[in-house]
Design a protein around this nucleic acid. Structure first.
Length: 262
DNA sequence: CCAATGGCTAGTG
DNA sequence: GCACTAGCCATTG
């Protein structure tokens, strides 16, 4: 540093372009730049009660239930290496999504996921409202048919439950399975979106996990919207997909039981 | 690197 | 049918 240069009160050499640049940043960083680094959190009412939602400039990165904001911030920091600041008003699209359970128009920031987790969550994101698929179905779809348990683990780490509907993934035997916000919440969410859990339970008790129509020769998961329109007179239940196939049925192209056909 | 741990399953008796 | 269990596999300690 030259003695002729003015001395900064903080001892910084402002003639150094780098230092000058940094100083300018610190002094009046545009909001957009700060938000490129820091995430913002908001509180939103959801179907399961109040939730905290963290958003980056790319979209929603993290969502959790709970009352204590310090806890939320701490758990966010445990997973993401970036600061989290209070963020003001929730975007209307986000509020609408969490009120109605229809997450249209909400951008997600899923960076940082491992390839396996990413594949699992993307498959789960494709399950339509009001329908359910087994853990094993996701495993097959992503090309890891034996990683069924790991699918459960990955869904358990879903950073954005509700927005990625992991509550629509159930066990192959028809039981509800576990959920990041607890099994009762999972049941409530499913009933809220008009899944007939009682019927699914009744069928499961009779070992029926697939249903088909003898007019179309198509077999579905019981909650598939095609399955729900089958006339009782033409309705047939099956214990396994193999049984349905040997009876001449082919798997529904909408719900894709036995997701081997891509 | 090895062991342990899950939002699970299909098989066995 | 109904319990049980060995197998599975991506993460984590």
């Amino acid at each position: 540093m030259s003695a002729l240069e003015p001395t900064d009160p903080q001892g910084l050499d402002r003639s150094d372009p780098l230092v000058a640049g940094l100083a300018a940043l610190a002094a009046d960083a545009p909001a957009g730049l700060l938000d490129r680094v820091a995430a913002r959190w908001v509180r939103v009412d959801a179907a399961v009660g109040g939730v905290y939602v963290a958003m980056t400039d790319q979209g929603v990165a993290y969502l959790r239930t709970g009352q204590d904001e310090d806890e939320f911030v701490a758990s966010f920091r445990g997973r993401f290496a970036r600061p989290l600041l209070p963020g003001g008003t929730p975007p209307p699209a986000l509020r609408r999504a969490l009120e109605t359970g229809r997450p249209t128009g909400v951008r997600l920031d899923l960076r940082g996921l491992r390839p396996f987790e990413d594949a699992v969550l993307r498959a789960a994101a494709d399950i339509p409202r009001g329908e359910m698929r087994p853990y094993a179905w996701i495993a097959e779809r992503i090309g890891r048919p034996k990683a069924v348990r790991a699918v459960g683990t990955a869904l358990g780490h879903n950073p954005v439950p509700l927005l990625i509907p992991c509550h629509r993934v159930i066990r192959s035997d028809g039981r509800i399975g576990q959920y990041v916000f607890g099994t009762p919440a999972k049941e409530r969410l499913l009933r809220m979106e008009e899944v007939n859990l009682d019927e699914v339970g009744t069928l499961a008790a009779k070992n029926i996990h697939f249903v088909g129509s003898d007019t179309t020769g198509i077999v579905c998961f019981p909650t598939c919207h095609n399955a729900r329109r089958i006339t009782p007179a033409h309705w047939h239940g099956f214990r396994t997909l193999v049984q349905a196939e040997s009876a001449g049925y082919r798997s529904c192209r909408h719900c894709r039981p036995g997701a081997d056909v891509s």
